[in-house]
Simulated assay, not measured.
Amino acid sequence: MHGGRTLYGFTLGVITLHTHFPRTLGDVANARTWKFPVLYKIVEGATPRAIIGKEKSCVDRILSAAKELEAEGVKVITTSCGFLSVLQEELARAVSIPVITSALLLVPLVYRICGMKPVGILTANSKAFTKEHLLKAGADQIPVKIAGLENTDFGKALLNDEPCMDFEKARSEVVQTAKELVRQHPDLGCIVFECTNLPPFATDVQRETGLLVFNLIDLVNMVCSAAERIGDVF
């Protein structure tokens, strides 16, 4: 047996934004969401607004966080913000383990699975959502329809990093936004949550829209399951 580290046994490493809003069960930054041992790396100064603004200092710290997580022994790395799809290539090249920056990586797959119909995307901020976010996820050639939550209390709580949130109101806002997206685009094949804070509402949205809903938790669980097929030596 060979050592060299202080801690062992982590499957998943999460590069986490520096935030203060609540993280309920199902959120990427709630450790009880995961069935795998998880190690978090908080990137100081990486606020939602800093990430949306693509601040260079944040990018450098995120790349460093990925390298630190790999050195600490995790098998898979993910992030706590779907807009980090713009760093997919950089992060994947920076380490030698799987990196999942965003649920947007699912878009090409679910498009083909769900009848090659347009994919609905629910995002925290549609005004900040760009073609680059899709391009870096390999999804720029897929027909998508986008709905943002930036004008809801839920969306504002995330973007303004507010320490309190009305969860039931958030649930209603997310469901209503999804239903309106489907009403406007009845040809949708499925819905993908760009925002990593939306998975707690996946069941409600799927029930109310009748469409399959995919999110980062689904993708990370799949990759972690593959990574754990061969266990650690110790």
Rank of each mutant, 00 (worst) to 15 (best):
R5A: 01
T6V: 15
L12P: 01
T16F: 00
L17I: 14
T24N: 06
G26K: 13
V28R: 03
W34N: 02
F36Y: 13
V38W: 04
V38C: 02
Y40W: 09
V43F: 12
V43R: 06
E44Y: 06
E44H: 11
T47N: 08
A50M: 10
G53N: 14
G53C: 03
K56I: 05
S57V: 14
R61G: 01
A66C: 14
K67W: 01
L69Y: 08
E70M: 11
A71D: 12
A71M: 07
E72D: 13
V74H: 12
K75G: 04
C81I: 03
F83R: 02
F83K: 04
L84P: 10
S85W: 06
V86Y: 12
R93Q: 14
P98L: 08
I100R: 06
T101P: 12
L106R: 04
P108R: 04
L109P: 00
V110D: 09
I113D: 05
G115M: 04
M116E: 15
I121S: 01
N125W: 13
T130W: 06
E132W: 00
H133N: 05
H133V: 02
L134P: 12
L134I: 11
A137L: 07
D140G: 12
Q141G: 12
L149M: 14
E150F: 08
E150R: 12
G155T: 13
K156L: 12
L158Q: 09
D161K: 04
C164G: 00
F167M: 14
K169P: 08
E173F: 02
E173H: 04
V174N: 07
K179Q: 15
E180D: 09
V182L: 13
P186M: 01
D187W: 00
G189Y: 13
T196E: 08
L198E: 00
L198T: 00
P200F: 03
P200R: 02
A202V: 07
R207V: 13
R207K: 15
T209H: 08
T209N: 09
G210E: 10
G210S: 06
L212N: 14
V213I: 11
L216A: 14
I217D: 02
V223Y: 10
S225K: 12
S225I: 00
D232P: 05
D232L: 10
